[in-house]
Nucleic acid binder design. Structure first.
Length: 573
DNA sequence: GCCGTTTTCGGCCCGACTGTTTTCAGTCG
């Protein structure tokens, strides 16, 4: 049984939880969590990385962690981990995920009341067994009841593509109701970093009238429940169970605060460690000298400049080497949405899209694009009303005619051809060679094992007419795991064959993800950012793909569809 | 457990908030 890096990370996190309940050295606990983070941010197969010695020198993975990974890889288990598991009942760690309940409480409840699981805790609370414990009172008991309620209704993280428009609406409505009390306003947190999923939404604001602003915030149409309401922070719950926090900060601290609340946590820790080495201190109010003199805080850029770092865009703040790069002034010049000149993955009424070719052209031109490719599904994908060979060829003829009537814009004929279970394609080469752009993609048979899936996709990429591999892992966030596929091998073939890899902008796909997009860049494999739009509005999803690419450190030069039409045509020849 | 342009030992981010407390511990982000 092969053990994945995510599995190892999960084991490390569980060890950290056990150790925290035991009351171990907090820094040792952090070390396990940090190692788990580091593993999750690596791209590639763990065993291969280990064999090639690539794990050495990864920050957070030292001698001890390396040995543990080695043992896990060769035996599939870890004695120290098994020992901890034997030491505690199996349901204990889960109690930690209840809000308000931390390791000390779990330990106390376990030892004094015999609470071994979330259900045990529920019963203990109901029979008021907690309020007489040392350090506990009626109020704490009440808070645990609340925590349990939140735990029971706990929702999974929401998609970036859902959160972004929502926060836009929240800010809009807030401005409508309280514009005169709002000075600066900006989302922070993982939303601002462009993470693919969002836990809760943080909004920062400077205000001349905080209490009236908070009144307005807590009476927005989105409010289902008010969790907290104060002068500096209020929290509300939307009907969907999403928490939105609004924080009021002083104008002179806005930069430091937005830096602080944007995170990520490990980026900030790294930054503050760096500050300490320079005799400085960073908090959410500013950057201070040892004498307590404030030297920055109003603008976010200053915080970085004080530490002799160039400004780090929010999307890079994941502690994946961005601070070191900023130090050497080697940060990438991240691409922007304005750099995008076209879209290669578009569906129309020809298959399962909702709008016509003409509609898509119109919207693309409004966006300032210079080209699009029409890539409807192929015949075997019946659910999407896939085109027959004859259909796609007559569509290509129609596109030719459309092109003859267009100035300064080009429509490419194409297809999103299905990669069948055996790696053959749904259309014959005779048909494919008559199309401008051939995208290959897997839509069925996701449960194949890694060897089968990898060779299936590689076989498809070896077809001379395939230009793009769409949504390479097939994941659907919150619905379907990435399929088992060795992307390192796939990338090697893509590179040799000159196939472009897609960053798909659909909110639930974002596939390739940030980590793999960065790996593609490292291998100098061209990326295309596509929307996979099934209607004209969806062409605007491109921003999600761009954000994902930015998180993958991509620059304009790494992305094919930043090329203007003339350069693209030269390339396609 | 990790790590080193002061260190191979002795540090390890920082503050708010809350509750149970007469000065602090626990949790959170």
């Amino acid at each position: 049984m092969k053990i994945s890096k995510n599995k190892v990370a999960q084991i490390f996190r569980e060890i950290a939880d056990f150790l925290s309940i035991k009351g171990e050295n907090p820094f040792r606990i952090r070390a396990y969590e940090k190692a788990a983070d580091a593993l999750e941010h690596l791209s590639g197969d763990l065993e291969e990385l280990y064999r090639r010695g690539k794990l050495k020198g990864v920050p957070g993975i030292g001698k001890g962690m390396l040995e543990k990974i080695e043992v896990l890889l060769s035996t599939g288990t870890l004695p120290a981990y098994e020992q901890l598991r034997a030491e505690f009942p199996p349901g204990l760690v889960e109690i930690l995920s209840i809000p308000e309940v931390g390791p000390k409480t779990v330990k106390l409840l376990y030892e004094k009341v015999g609470v071994k699981s979330v259900d045990d805790l529920e019963m203990a609370v109901q029979s008021h067994k907690l309020r007489n414990l040392p350090g506990m009172g009626a109020k704490t008991e009440e808070n645990i009841v609340k925590g349990l309620k939140l735990y029971r209704m706990r929702r999974s993280r929401i998609l970036l593509g859902t959160a972004l428009p929502l926060v836009g609406e929240v800010i809009l409505e807030l401005r409508e109701r309280a514009s005169s009390w709002i000075e600066k306003i900006s989302p922070a947190g993982s939303l601002r970093r462009g993470k693919e999923t969002i836990g809760d939404i943080d909004i920062l604001v400077t205000s001349s009238n905080p209490s009236s602003l908070m009144d307005a915030f807590t009476s927005l149409s989105f409010v289902n429940d008010i969790l907290a309401k104060g002068e500096t922070k209020s929290s509300i719950l939307t009907p969907q169970g999403l928490q939105i926090d609004l924080r009021v900060v002083a104008p002179e601290s806005f930069g430091a605060a937005i830096q602080y609340f944007t995170g990520s946590k490990s980026h900030n820790i790294n930054l503050r460690e760096r500050a300490i080495k320079r005799g400085l201190k960073i908090n959410e109010y500013g950057v201070f000298t040892q004498e307590g003199k404030k030297i920055a805080g109003e603008r976010e850029e200053e915080v970085y400049h004080c530490l002799d770092l160039s400004f780090i865009p929010p999307e890079l703040r994941e502690d994946r080497g961005e601070i070191e790069a900023a130090e050497e002034d080697k940060l990438p010049h991240l691409l922007t949405e304005e750099d995008i000149k076209g879209d290669f993955h578009i569906h129309t009424t020809g298959s399962d899209g909702r709008d016509s070719i003409e509609d898509m052209i119109q919207r693309a031109r409004e966006k300032g694009y210079q080209y699009i490719a029409i890539t409807d599904h192929s015949s075997s994908l019946k659910v999407a009303r896939g085109l027959s060979e004859q259909d796609v060829l007559s569509q290509a003829e129609r596109i030719k005619k459309i092109n003859s009537s267009l100035n300064n814009f080009r429509v490419f004929s194409g297809t999103e051809v299905d990669i069948r279970a055996d790696g053959t394609l749904d259309f014959s080469d005779e048909v494919l060679k008559k199309l401008d752009i051939v995208i290959a993609a897997v839509h069925t048979g996701f449960k194949q094992d890694e060897r089968k899936m990898t060779s299936r996709v590689i076989k498809a990429l070896q077809n001379p007419y395939v230009k793009i591999l769409a949504h390479p892992t097939g994941r659907l966030l919150g619905e379907r795991e990435a399929c088992a596929i060795d992307l390192n091998k796939v990338m090697q073939v893509a590179k040799d064959r000159g196939v472009w890899l897609e960053v798909n902008s659909q909110p639930q796909r974002l596939d390739l993800n940030d980590v793999w997009a960065r790996e593609a860049k490292r291998r100098k494999i061209p990326i295309v950012i596509n929307t996979d739009a099934h209607n004209k509005q969806s062409l605007d999803l491109i921003k999600l793909g761009v954000v994902t690419a930015r998180r993958g450190w991509l620059e304009k030069e790494d992305v094919i569809n930043t090329l203007p039409l003339d350069k693209l045509l030269t390339l396609l020849k």
